[in-house]
Design a protein around this nucleic acid. Sequence first.
DNA 1: AGTCTCATTATTCTCTGTCT
DNA 2: AGACAGAGAATAATGAGACT
Length: 299
Amino acid sequence: MTNELVKYHTELNTIPLRKFSPVEMNLFFSIVSRMRDKGEQTVRFSFDQLKDLSDYKATANSRFIDDIYSTYDKILSLRFGKRSANGLDRSMFVMFTQFEIVGDSDDPYVDIKLFEKAIPLLNSLDEWVRYSLKQFNELQSSYSKTMFRLLKQFRTTGYAYFSKDEFIELLDIPKSYRESDINKNVFKPIKEELTPLFRGLLIRKKYGKGRGTPVIGYQFAFKPESKNADDFSKGEQENLRKKMFNIEHNGELSQQEKWIAKDKILGLKIGTHESEFHTQENKNKEKEMLIDDLKNMFK
DNA sequence: AGTCTCATTATTCTCTGTCT
DNA sequence: AGACAGAGAATAATGAGACT
């Protein structure tokens, strides 16, 4: 599964995945990645296949069925479709017309069929977003996941700008959030989880005029990937090395943020790098004190 | 199936600064 | 001065995973 690529029309990227949990996002994009260029065919996924694709952790089948079901439930609630510029013409449709879960079988499976009007989203694409499904699955925060998708759309230019309104809509941020809440609940996980994946990631706020200094938009910049860069994994060690490099060489992160980011990619408990650092620091202090003591003894 | 734990997400409040 | 914005802390609610 390691080298599975997700690829779909950019249009699909602009639809906010309302209330999707990270697990549900993994399932959704796993399905999307395998439905591409299948037209109106019904595609069958075995449970094992889906679990493998989506890095599914919990093991019980009943829970898995619940999760697939709730994923479909949320897909149904999505507002697919277009809104004309003046907002008067709107069309809505669902993405899948058939979604059949057969769990009571030796080899349980799901049958899925794309809705005819959704075909352009996944077939004979003229423009697209693509990224590694594995990288996407490994992100924990749903905000990071969404931001990852959005930024990948600009992978070869390395620059993206979103107005505050757009940003809030695309990431489905609660309306009650103030700027400080966005910093804490949205940008914090994004910085922690995406810095390893986007080299030199830089986030800047754009301020407007008027009372206070209102934030009106956010800029994202990173080192562009080359056009034909493959997203294929070069092995676990190489991936890790690259991530560590990206964290270490990001001028935006504070020392503490770097520690947390490193803990995350190594799967360590948050705070490991920090306490490591402090024990090291203490050891050094002890050494110094010891040396001081020795000096005093010989005075 | 029930309980516990931890991380994430949501809400609310205080303090400080900036603009008209 | 008064209205608005932002950072940051405190706290509550939710949800997933682990354990038994």
